[in-house]
């Protein structure tokens, strides 16, 4: 009798343990994102200090930044946050193809954003060594772009894994974390857009 009891207890413990593991991963990931946001916060405060204290902020021959194309880019990236949310909802309702369709749409929107960024960079008349303006511009947009790229990479992995049988038996932590990361990248971009493009 005691052995039966201990077996059932063990099973229960194993279930609790597993449940905890998924919860731990999400908790740990949120802690990591909070820490990561401090890097951006540091760059942003550096940018504000430079912009408010530098005498010749814009390099010679540069009038300012074009805002029309980046604004369209912003709308695409921010909208993709809603698209990835719909994808997640589809997954929770076990509609795998709906999930994949909206997931791919998110990836396409993210890729469009990166493409738009690359076009903008190649058309600019200043470089990374063009004073503090050039340095901070490329540092901020480049570091954010690296995060967008990482996000698309994670999304690709999650897309491939969605075809593996039994992938979601232990929950969908990977998809949820990727989605959270995408929202994070979005929020950072909104702050960045206001600081660099709106506040000129």
């Amino acid at each position: 009798m005691t052995s039966e009891l201990s077996i059932s207890q063990e099973k229960e413990a194993a279930v609790v343990h597993e449940h905890d593991e998924a919860g731990n991963s999400m908790f740990g990931f949120i802690v990591f994102l909070l820490s990561e946001s401090v890097i951006f916060l540091s760059f942003f405060s550096g940018y504000v200090i430079y912009k408010t204290t530098t005498a010749d902020w814009l390099p010679a021959g540069v009038a300012g930044l074009e805002t029309r194309e980046p604004f369209i880019n912003t709308i695409v990236l921010v909208s993709s946050s809603f698209v990835i949310y719909i994808a997640e909802r589809f997954l929770h309702r076990d509609n795998l193809w709906g999930f994949r369709a909206f997931w791919i749409a998110t990836m396409a929107m993210g890729s469009y954003f990166l493409y738009g960024q690359a076009v903008e960079w190649s058309g600019l008349s200043f470089g990374v060594t063009s004073g503090l303006f050039g340095g901070t511009f490329y540092l901020l947009t480049g570091f954010h772009g690296l995060h967008v790229f990482t996000g698309i990479l994670l999304q690709t992995i999650m897309l491939i894994r969605s075809f593996l049988p039994g992938n979601y038996e232990k929950g969908s932590f990977g998809v949820e974390a990727t989605s959270l990361f995408w929202h994070f990248v979005d929020v950072i971009w909104i702050i960045l857009f206001i600081l660099i493009y709106v506040w000129q």
Partner: peptide
């Protein structure tokens, strides 16, 4: 993360020639 931010900028100053 704040030190990381400063270190990245310092690394760019040394390697890329930023200011």
């Amino acid at each position: 993360p704040a030190l990381t931010a400063g270190a990245v900028m310092l690394l760019f100053d040394i390697t890329l020639g930023t200011s």
